[in-house]
């Protein structure tokens, strides 16, 4: 009798406490999520606002058709292409370094290395990805450029080649690690199927495992490219500050991110056109990386379904 009574009296109280706690945790989680979403919206809103201000003073056609970027000079010109060109040239050099080396490392780690080697090397790769980029920047300026100059005398003190190569080394761990993941999850049954047909190890790797992982590999490369496009410190330090529309890796060039750093370090007052160029350039950068990330995500999703 009394037992039943305690049960009855206790149960509702516990339940109330439980529901309150649940609600509390739920709303806390919601709050955290909301803050990050709102911040993103805030950033985009400010970006849009400033970009709109920019385009009241500069026409679209000027921005997208002019081939000179001289907003800080007396004769102002607002053609975005030199900066885009700088970013793309350096990113391209970076990919030329990171792609072959990163894929080689990935294939080696997942297919040829002893499991113990893999266990040691993978965390090292991830640590490498955590080195502050300013270190890479000075490495490019003070070490790689002088070394390269002793081989290529025409190389300028600021150039696209050195930061591009160093950036390639910076994103190499990302390419290697993500591609390795993609290779590693290729089902064992596919490898066995290939071996059972009389394939050699190389044939198994390159005619079955690699093609099966190509989705994940492509996604990782695009992600790395997006990282290269958005990378700031290396290009700001080692590539120079001359926006120029050329594809010569030996000469100085300015990337979009480097320009943003350059202007924001100076004392350009709020609301001026110089100040607003930061946001215009930032918006282009934002769109570029957003598109790259979305493409990468799409590819990953599409290929994930393959092994369902």
């Amino acid at each position: 009798m009394s037992f039943a009574k305690t049960l009855e009296t206790e149960k509702p109280i516990r339940r109330v406490i439980q529901t309150v706690a649940e609600k509390l945790i739920e709303s806390l989680c919601f709050l955290c999520a909301a803050v990050s979403v709102l911040t993103t919206f805030g950033v985009v809103a400010i970006l849009c606002y400033e970009v709109a201000g920019f385009f009241t003073k500069v026409s679209f056609s000027e921005f997208f058709l002019s081939t000179e970027w001289t907003p800080l000079f007396y004769h102002k010109s607002f053609g975005i292409w030199p900066l885009v060109c700088g970013t793309l040239l350096i990113s391209f050099i970076a990919m030329c370094v990171a792609l072959p080396l990163g894929l080689l490392v990935a294939v080696y780690l997942s297919e040829f290395a002893h499991p113990k080697t893999r266990k040691v090397v993978k965390p090292i790769l991830e640590i490498l990805a955590g080195i502050p980029t300013i270190v890479y920047g000075y490495f490019a300026l003070l070490f790689v450029t002088p070394v390269l100059q002793s081989i290529i005398p025409t190389l300028e003190g600021f150039n696209a080649l050195a930061p591009g190569m160093v950036m390639g080394i910076m994103i190499l761990p990302m390419v290697a690690s993500l591609s390795e993941d993609a290779l590693y999850v290729v089902p064992r049954s596919l490898r066995e199927g290939s071996y059972a047909m009389g394939a050699t190890k190389l044939q198994v790797v390159f005619s079955v495992v690699f093609p099966a992982a190509i989705g994940g590999i492509t996604a990782s490369c695009i992600l790395a490219l997006s990282r290269a496009v958005g990378e700031t410190m290396i290009v700001a330090i080692a590539a120079g500050q001359q926006p120029a529309l050329h594809f010569n890796p030996l000469k100085a060039i300015e990337a979009m991110t480097a320009y943003i750093v350059q202007v924001s370090l100076g004392d350009t007052p709020h609301g001026t056109i110089e100040y607003q160029t930061i946001f215009a350039v930032g918006a282009v950068l934002f769109v570029m990386t957003l598109v790259l990330n979305m493409v990468s995500l799409r590819i990953r999703e599409r290929y994930q379904r393959m092994f369902g």
């Binding site: 049954s189 047909m197 009389g198 394939a199 092994f307």
Partner: peptide, 21 residues
Amino acid sequence: DVVTLRKRVGMVFQRSNPFPK
């Protein structure tokens, strides 16, 4: 020569494993 051997001795597995081709 394992390659020649496996050419002569084919195998079908428990779970079908067609290549993603």
